[in-house]
């Protein structure tokens, strides 16, 4: 189980890194080609959000994985981390 979960998390992190890096690169390019444009702003915001949400998604997938295993202590640990992360999003943008 643990190894399957680790591979799943690895794939998630790979996808998250690639998307955020690509979108941030386009956003940075747009900032200088079209300064002050909505496109540049939108690309940078989306890139940053994907970057920030990738670890959150990683924790959420872990919670679901341990739920499936009925490994209640690890559901608790990962659940606390997920609540802390969501809490900081709510505190920052709510």
């Amino acid at each position: 189980m643990s190894e399957a979960l680790e591979r799943r998390l690895g794939r998630l992190l790979t996808v998250g890194t690639r998307i955020s890096t690509a979108v941030l690169a386009m956003g940075l390019a747009a900032t200088f080609v079209l300064p002050g444009s909505h496109l540049a702003h939108a690309l940078l915001t989306v890139g940053l959000l994907v970057l920030l949400l990738t670890p959150v998604a990683r924790v959420a997938v872990s919670v679901v994985g341990y739920l499936g295993e009925r490994d209640w202590w690890f559901v608790l640990y990962t659940g606390i981390v997920l609540v802390l992360l969501i809490g900081s999003f709510v505190a920052a943008f709510g």
Binding site: G27, A40, T45, L48, P55
Partner: peptide, 23 residues
């Protein structure tokens, strides 16, 4: 990744994240 995210989000919410420089 998880540790730094809680911090980065709080700075972002306070308007202290400069997106182009972060990129």
């Amino acid at each position: 990744g998880v540790t730094a995210t809680s911090g980065a989000v709080i700075y972002y919410g306070h308007g202290e994240m400069i997106p182009a420089l972060a990129a």
